[in-house]
Amino acid sequence: MKHLLSATDLDASTATLVLDTAAEMATLAGREVKKLPTLRGRTVVNLFYEDSTRTRISFEAAAKRLSADVINFSAKGSSVSKGESLKDTALTLQAMGADAVVIRHPASGAPHRLSTWVAGSVVNAGDGTHEHPTQALLDAYTMRSRLGRLAGLSVAIVGDVLHSRVARSNVHLLATLGAKVTLVGPPTLIPPDLRTEVSYDLDAVLPDADVVMMLRVQRERMAASYFPSAREYARRYGLDGPRMRRLPDHAIVMHPGPMNRGMEIAPEVADSARSTIVEQVANGVSVRMAVLYLLLGGKS
């Protein structure tokens, strides 16, 4: 594997290898010295065209724990704000000897474009409304560690699937790993052609779900008439306490963050024992270590 641009780049055995490697990386977290020498002398660039403290810090921590040199390149306050093109930025990073570029970009497909211009590996850290493959990997890792397996799990992904890169990557990866995905939300926000189960009725889906993944719903979608109001959205598709209690006892509740408490998820649910939201953040570092390790260090 040269790049990680889409969850569809991962077949079942590769995805499982990433998750198994992440489990090994996780054991580091318990040690006093949380660092491996694996990527010493390698350079990882975090190229962020969108604000995302959470994802950038996660990648930065992952690279540093593998002893890589990390350069953070944020689109604000850089040559990018002076109008430099992605290609010119790519050639600059190339000249500086970047072994891997982790890119977050508001335009779908920007990581694909970047991968044609640089010699190093490209990791998609979220592109537009396309994909966010390391989020799907950390979600799969979290499900596997909580529930012991992925094959055969029923996963409900709830909310603004249309605009969600997290949902797209999860749909692909979970299908690869044998889970059954149901997309839930108002018809305006569920694209009809993702080749998976669709339901417009959250209450009907909950009793059979092993996992409920709540997506962030942006309030500005109201202005474009995707739904009438935050209140109506929360009433029909928000996960509150009574709805949570319709879930089987073992079921978990996930959210990629950042949450709109009171909109798609009630505080009571976000802070409950079913919630994996904080674990997801911790697992993110392990999974990103595994990805960087396999892309850069695994074979050399």
């Binding site: 093109s85 290609k87 335009a107 779908s108 497909g109 474009r113």
Partner: peptide, 9 residues
């Protein structure tokens, strides 16, 4: 420069 860029741009 109007084609060697991100699709959306």
């Amino acid at each position: 420069e109007d084609k060697e860029c991100e699709w959306a741009y």
